[in-house]
Amino acid sequence: MKKTPVAAIVAVAALALLPLVLADNYFLHLLILFLIWVIIGSSWNIMAGYTGQVSFGHAAFFGTGAYTAGLFVMHGGFSAWWGMAFGGVAAMLLGLPFGAICFPLRGAYFALASLALNLILMHLATIAERFTGGMQGIMIMPTFVSKVPYYYITLGMAVATLVVVQSIIRSKWGYYFVSIREDQDAAESLGIDTNRYKNVSLAVSAFFTGTAGALYMNYMGFIDPHVVFSLHDYSVMAILVAIVGGVGTIYGPAVGAFIMVGLQELFRSGFFGLFKYLGDRTGSETFTQAMEVVQHAHVLVFGILVVVVILFLPNGIVGDWGKIRKSVFRSKPAA
């Protein structure tokens, strides 16, 4: 398992210097979202991509982290930043008993149960109005006016996540995770306590996802059950981020996060305002209508993307890079 590529170091350095050159709020916002997704995608990946335990409900951990931060403010008037310390822990405390129950049941149980956990928490957060604010959600005052501090905090966390994930993967744990993914019976016979290490992997994954949730609460200033426990926007998106980039690779989720956040924004903004611009310029109704269609199409595009990626790039851009290179640069021999 290889050394940190120079490209990764350069990328982080570039990201660190970026706000000095380009302090545009919209741009920073997109980068913050991208970095949050690097964290979530990498977390999902360590459990699903490396350990082979696919979660269909990672929003459960994200939402738990976000609510932990929100509840610090709502009850007792602490700062939401406490969530950064405890959101991950809360998500982990949710994950451990859950894993302890589901992992011994092999097969599809874990995947399905994670989906159920996600739905249960969404309902609970909605029903327990007194405690969580119910459908109203939780609103907090942002700490900073500028986006720059949030940007650096998120960048720091994303880098920390990647560094931790990478060092785990290159240690005994990493070998154990991948062994479990490849063959559980073999892993057991080699002295690997498969249930325990699945739980370790889940704990790491839940921790970072929960921390990302707490960060989200602090940054966005608003959560409600249908935002942070959303199946499509978090659980499915987490899967997409990882598989588009490449499951079971260190940098795959980062690549996936870049593409998915880009795509999401591309559609949300109507091709970055292209349609609006064209509509204003030409005064034609068609463009305005086209923009609406495009804005509503993003879930459709995500759905199609799931289908296409699984069919043609099951190991993602990083994992199938050899295949991509071959088909794109077919004429040239491998360098």
Binding site: V178, E182, D185, E188, S189, G248
Partner: peptide, 30 residues
């Protein structure tokens, strides 16, 4: 199984169970 392995009983499988996407070295390292 994993406890028994730690006690010093090793085994092979008749229907082989290679850790397929790992190299031979990584299989044995695990």
């Amino acid at each position: 199984s994993h406890k028994i392995c730690h006690l010093g009983v090793g085994r092979t499988f008749q229907v082989v169970k290679p850790l397929g996407r790992m190299s031979v070295l990584d299989n044995v390292t695990a």
